[in-house]
Computed example of a mutant assay.
Amino acid sequence: MTPSAFAPLRAEVRAFVEEQRAAGAFVPGIDSWLAGWDEEFSRKLGERGWLGMTIPTEYGGHGRTYLERFVVTEELLCAGAPVAAHWIADRQIAPSLLRFGTPAQREEFLPAIARGTSYWAIGMSEPDSGSDLASVRTRATRIDGGWRLSGTKVWTSGAHRAHAFFVLARSASLDPAHRHEGLTQFLVRLDAPGVQVNPIHSFDGSHHFNEVVLDDVEVSDTDVLGEVGQGWRQVTSELKFERSGPERFLSTFAGLAGLTANGLPVRASAAGVGRHVARLAALHHLSYDVATRLQANVPAELLAAMVKGIGTRSEGDIAEDLAEWVVDVLDPEVDRLAADGLSRRPGFTLRGGTNEVLRGIVAKGLGA
């Protein structure tokens, strides 16, 4: 289906967002998918059927397409709406549970994700590991009826508010010749004994990142996600969901929209703004193509890496220009958005895989 086929859905979401903003339910934000935590807003989206859209109806979802979900998420992000509470659960956890989870795991978690009442985080990155997931040192030791987890995860967005997270751990001894083997994913409740969540504050004082320490945390065999030892394969398959969405190029869009709402500022040229709009239009089509591939269940990892790599550079460029252009704008809200964009700019090209790693993926995928 062409994007125009979803125009009524797009108009419906846009009208809802404008209504909520006019009512004072939220103010537009930068990085709203990461920093805009509002559980009430998430529940409202769940009530309208705009969460769990691709989850089958038998698990409390709505059985709709990835393309429809793309339209909804794009409109929410363009408005800078506060979607962080449900974002990781809806984007990444639900598809992984559908592909790798047991029927019991799906029945327990998917309906609440679709309602907007189940919040999740991701436990992949570790101290001193950068983007090298194969260097995972969190250990999973076999015990009677389950596993004992010990280790530390960092940059765990929303862990101080989430209910649970996926943990990638080494469940077998490291074989230096096969570093990607012997890894397993686990479902860990964040209120479980032995779990300690420590805040990581950004230099602007904001808090959405965390360090999560697992001190002999016991989980049962029913909390294994997928197959023991197949964690690497599962995690890499999840990255197409994490890297490909419109959040990878629209994090600063609310600032650009606010800045130009009443014409161009003195310092901003039509060519400068047009350059950003053109790149966003191209990224929209590229990301939409990934959604089309997800719907068809065909490989999308290469294009997802391209969306993330190009998109995060683009939204960073917007942040830098906003900081320069806003000097001539006497609007406190635009000033706030520009300041937030600049302060968050360093993280854009790190989270979800550094640009250097992504370039390697693209080069390898293209046969360079």
Rank of each mutant, 00 (worst) to 15 (best):
357 V>F: 15
7 A>L: 14
126 E>S: 02
204 D>V: 03
286 L>S: 01
321 D>F: 03
102 T>M: 06
147 W>R: 05
194 G>F: 09
264 L>R: 08
22 A>N: 11
46 G>K: 05
285 H>G: 08
368 A>H: 14
120 W>H: 07
279 R>L: 13
94 A>F: 10
18 E>Y: 08
60 G>M: 01
342 L>G: 03
189 R>P: 13
73 T>F: 14
118 S>V: 11
355 N>F: 12
167 V>C: 12
85 A>I: 04
300 A>E: 01
348 F>E: 11
31 D>V: 14
152 T>R: 15
145 G>W: 12
206 S>F: 10
230 Q>T: 04
40 E>F: 09
352 G>H: 10
252 T>G: 00
351 R>N: 11
114 A>G: 02
190 L>V: 04
199 P>N: 04
49 G>S: 08
325 W>T: 00
150 S>C: 12
190 L>R: 06
219 V>D: 00
212 V>L: 06
351 R>W: 14
355 N>D: 15
199 P>R: 07
13 V>E: 00
8 P>T: 03
187 L>C: 09
294 L>P: 04
318 I>D: 04
20 Q>H: 13
226 G>H: 06
242 E>S: 12
353 G>L: 04
146 G>S: 02
326 V>I: 13
90 D>Q: 07
73 T>S: 12
266 V>K: 15
36 G>D: 03
21 R>S: 12
48 R>G: 03
328 D>R: 10
83 V>A: 02
129 S>A: 15
1 M>L: 14
290 V>S: 00
81 A>T: 04
136 V>P: 04
219 V>M: 07
